[in-house]
């Protein structure tokens, strides 16, 4: 069920990228899609009633969630941060040059 919701979230994000004409909304769509996948990945590594996968002084932990997806998702979030910051900066510069956020009016390159 939750996996399904992740998929719905992904579709919302992709819809945002494909259908919106505003650059900022496209970036938001990208962020939503990205976090849908991150969520899915963390859920894959989750165990029911699991604990954080670190050593603790009170004995060994038996019910441990899988740490590897968490590490990968943390990395993916950082990468997403870098990409988003770059795209936002590009969008600001584009607005400075073209005076609009509308992709339909930012299309001088074609052919």
């Amino acid at each position: 069920m939750i996996y399904f919701l992740c998929l719905v979230l992904l579709c919302v994000g992709i819809y945002g990228v494909l259908r919106k004409r505003n650059i900022i909304r496209m970036i938001l769509g990208l962020i939503i899609a990205e976090h849908a996948i991150n969520l899915l990945f963390v859920l894959i590594g989750y165990r029911l009633n699991g604990r954080a996968p670190i050593l603790s002084p009170d004995g060994p932990i038996l019910q441990m969630v899988d740490p590897l997806p968490q590490a990968l998702v943390l990395t993916a979030i950082v990468i997403g941060l870098a990409t988003t910051a770059l795209l936002v900066a590009l969008a600001m510069r584009l607005h400075g040059k073209y005076g609009t956020y509308d992709v339909a009016r930012i299309r001088e390159l074609k052919g």
Binding site: I14, V17, I23, M26, I27, L30, A33, E34, T83, L86, L87, L90, A91, R93, L94, K97, Y98, I106, R107, E108, L109
Partner: peptide
Amino acid sequence: ELEAAFKYGVMGSV
């Protein structure tokens, strides 16, 4: 350049 980079960035991210 900015327009191309934005397009490239979005496509690459997808």
